[in-house]
């Protein structure tokens, strides 16, 4: 008799649990307001990444095309992947002394793991993270970038 009861209570509990499960999916089916999908790329225009988002490493330039990098090479030493190559140059400054400046700050995006060490360790805070994230290109060589813009120079007084 006991097993007889168990048979029916099993059926009852089974059906009940199934109905509870169906009520969850059913409820979501009828509540389209809960849809969480983001419509990328339609929302590209107003897609706002978080300010700290690590899209790529950039060199910060101000409106006069000035940056703060003096070519010390600390970022290169700190990068675990060798994705930064600093090529310094020497110029003679106004005071006649020979001075080190950055010639090319080369950044291999394809090798970067966004660890943030270069940005953190740069003594003059010349680097930062950009928000750009659409990095797909057809040619790998395009992932190698020169971070200091052409014609840019160092802000006075940073060296």
């Amino acid at each position: 008799m006991n097993s007889f009861f168990k048979y029916f209570s099993d059926i009852f509990h089974g059906v009940k649990s199934l109905l509870i499960g169906m009520s969850v999916t059913g409820r979501y089916f009828f509540s389209p307001g809960q849809i969480v999908t983001q419509q990328y790329p339609e929302n590209r225009k107003n897609l706002q990444m978080f300010e700290r988002f690590k899209g790529e490493v950039i060199m910060l330039h101000d409106e006069n095309n000035l940056h703060r990098c003096n070519g010390c090479g600390i970022c290169e030493n700190n990068c675990p992947n060798g994705s930064i190559e600093v090529i310094p140059a020497r110029i003679t400054g106004e005071d006649g002394k020979s001075k080190r400046i950055i010639d090319k700050h080369i950044y291999h995006l394809g090798m970067c793991t966004f660890c943030g060490l270069c940005v953190k360790n740069c003594p003059s805070n010349a680097l930062g993270f950009g928000q750009e994230f659409e990095h797909a290109v057809f040619d790998r060589s395009k992932l190698t970038k020169v971070l200091n813009k052409t014609g840019s120079s160092i802000i006075k007084g940073v060296e």
Binding site: F50, R52, F53, K54, T113, F114, C115, G116, K120, F129
Partner: peptide
């Protein structure tokens, strides 16, 4: 995470001695 650490998945947020940035 993305707001505080800048990454969604592989944050590299800890560093010896503390954390990379303060919380957002």
């Amino acid at each position: 995470w993305e707001e505080t650490t800048g990454s969604r998945f592989l944050q590299s947020y800890n560093c010896p001695g503390g954390v990379m940035q303060d919380i957002h």
